[in-house]
Design a binder for these strands. Sequence first.
DNA 1: CAGGTGATTTGACATTTGTCAAATAATAAT
DNA 2: ATTATTATTTGACAAATGTCAAATCACCTG
Lengths: 185, 185
Amino acid sequence: MLQKAILKISSLSPQSMISFLAAWKYWSVPKDHLLVREQTVSDYLYFIQKGAARIYYYKNGKEITEWIALDEQFFLSITSYFQRTPSHLIIQTLEPSEVYGISYNDFMALADRHHDIEKLLRKMITASLILSQERMDSIQFETAHQRYDRLLKTSPNIIQRVPLSYIASFLGITLETLSRIRSSR
Amino acid sequence: MLQKAILKISSLSPQSMISFLAAWKYWSVPKDHLLVREQTVSDYLYFIQKGAARIYYYKNGKEITEWIALDEQFFLSITSYFQRTPSHLIIQTLEPSEVYGISYNDFMALADRHHDIEKLLRKMITASLILSQERMDSIQFETAHQRYDRLLKTSPNIIQRVPLSYIASFLGITLETLSRIRSSR
DNA sequence: CAGGTGATTTGACATTTGTCAAATAATAAT
DNA sequence: ATTATTATTTGACAAATGTCAAATCACCTG
C-alpha cells in the first residue's frame, strides 16, 4: 500500500511517516471519473493503489495524453505540479480505481518541517527527472515502432486496459501510425 | 559569482553556505579543454562562471550534444549525474572558461547533513525537471524551425559562440536541416 | 598570399510520420 | 437480435526531416 511504496523511495522516521501519511487524501472512484477537472486550482501528486488513470490536456484542440498510470504507481502532471501550467489538465480514471493524493502545498509544508520528507521529495523528483530524460531520449532517437515495443516491454498488459487512441497520444504518434505499427508484426 | 547564483535558487544559513562553497572546486581552462573525459568515474555538477561549454556523448558512433552552457549557468549531464549512464560523456569548453564543480558524493553528503542544502538540491533538480519537460515538449510538438527560433530567443548570441554542428545536434536535427532552416529567413 | 583543412551550404532522393477520408470491426443500447 | 455509437484499420497523398554526395566558403598556417 501507500506506506510501503513510500518506503521504497526513502526511509522516514516514525514521526515523519505519521505526519506524511495524514496529509494524503483517499478516493475510491468509478471508471471514467475525472479526478482533476480543467481549471482546478489545487494540484495533487497521486498514488494509484489499484486501477488505471491517465493525465491529459488539450493542445490546439487536441487531447494530449501526458501520462498513463497503472496499479501502485505514483503519478502527477509534472508541468502542472511544479510549474502550474498548463493548468487545463485532466486526470481521468480508465477503470474503477483507488487513488491517494497529496496537495502541492501540503507536501511543501511537510518538506520544510521534516528533513527526511524533504529528502523523500527530492528522490521522487529525481525519479521523475530520470523518467523524463528517458522519455525524451526515446522520443528523440527511437522510431515510433521502437517506442511501442519499449512500452509493451514495460507494461505488457497496458494494451488490454487502455484504448489505443490514448496509447498513441502517450507515445507521441497518431492513432493511424500506431495501428500500422501493430499490424506490421 | 557562484554564491550569488546559489542564493538565487534557495537561501542557505551562513553555516551551510560556508560548508557548501568549500565543496566546490575551481578550474580555469583554455578553449577546447575536456573537463570530463570518457570513462571518468566522478561526476560533477558544474557552474560556468564565464565561457562556454558543451556536454556530449557518443551514440552509435555519432556525437550527441546533450547540453550547451554559457556564462553563469549551472549545468550537468542529468543522465550521468543521477543515473550514472551513459558514463561515456564528455564535457568540452568551447571558449577559455572559468568553471566550478561539485562532485555527486560531496553534494549528497552535504544534503544529508544540512536540511537547507537538501532543499537547495531539491530545487535544483526541480529546475532541471522543468527544463527537461520543456525540452521534451519542444522536441515532441515543435518543428525544427520553431525549435531553432526558440533557441535564438533564449540565447541570441549562441550562434556567434558555438559551431552550427553542435547546435544542430543540441536541437536534435542534422547539420543540413539546420542550414536549410537558417537560409530560409 | 597560396594551399589546405574544416565548416557550411546545396542538391537529389529516401524514409518516416501525419492528414484526411472512408471502410470495417467492436461494443453498447434499445 | 438490431441499431447506433465508438474504436480501429486501411488507402492515397503530403510534409518534414534524414542521408549521401558534392560544392562553396572561411579561416589558419607556412
